[in-house]
């Protein structure tokens, strides 16, 4: 991916750019709002990582102007302010996701990839497939290798979330936000327990597991081992 990083904290930008480059992304870095907006308008990026508080032009203002100019490039807002309050403002201004500092590099990349892919997608499909696992959002039917799988309403939502992010890493906080719409750290292993229940339902009795744990990051639903 080609990523524009707009961040005035030089040290933080350096670590982030380095981390992202190691994962194979191309990074362009600007250190203030005006330069960031100019670069974003020039285009060619798959995603933008934008600090909330920037010199010259505030981060929220950058997204607002970018959106007003008709750009739909996914924007992840980084902020050192508490998300419970600022998140709504960030999303309202036109941001696609919101992450507070200090962030985990894994969390940031997982979110960026999810954003970039959602952006590239056409209208969301009603029938979702990963390998021999099928989920139909209209009939709310789930089957694997033609065998019907019974899920609770929440398990269905969780699987739908994972399958929409198939072959990507999703973090625990992404799951809590995407499936339950809560933005706090649940501290205990609540998400792991729900995942293992879902795993029982979709992977048990099949040779090839689809739901994998990604150490230090989260989970991924994929046919690849």
């Amino acid at each position: 991916m080609k990523i524009l990083l707009v961040e005035d904290d030089e040290r933080a930008a350096e670590f982030l750019a380095k981390g992202l480059r190691e994962l194979g992304h191309a990074i362009e870095h600007t250190a203030d709002g005006e330069a960031g907006l100019a670069a974003a308008i020039a285009g060619g990026f798959d995603a933008i990582v934008l600090d909330r508080m920037l010199p010259k032009l505030d981060g929220l203002e950058v997204v607002r102007r970018l959106r007003a100019g008709g750009s739909g490039v996914p924007v992840l807002i980084l902020s050192a302010l508490d998300e419970v309050d600022e998140r709504i403002q960030g999303l309202r201004a036109g941001g696609d996701d919101y992450l507070t500092k200090p962030y985990h590099l894994e969390e940031l990349t997982a979110r960026l990839e999810a954003l970039a892919r959602r952006h590239g997608e056409a209208a969301p499909a009603a029938r979702l497939v990963v390998a021999d696992l099928e989920l139909d959002t209209r009939t709310r039917r789930v089957s694997r290798a033609g065998r019907k799988i019974e899920l609770t309403a929440r398990e269905f939502q969780l699987l739908e979330f994972l399958i929409r992010h198939a072959r990507q890493v999703v973090t625990r906080t992404m799951i809590l936000e995407g499936v339950w719409d809560y933005h706090f750290d649940p501290k205990t292993n609540v998400i792991d327990v729900h995942i293992s229940r879902l795993r029982q339902a979709i992977d048990k009795g099949f040779d090839r597991p689809l739901l994998h744990t990604v150490r230090g990051a989260g989970y991924t639903l994929t046919e690849e081992p």
Partner: peptide, 18 residues
């Protein structure tokens, strides 16, 4: 305070992970 402390922590974490 949040901005300041989180900024520091973020840099420390970045450096540590690096």
């Amino acid at each position: 305070t949040a901005h300041d402390l989180r900024g520091h922590l973020n840099r420390i974490r970045g450096a540590a992970q690096d």
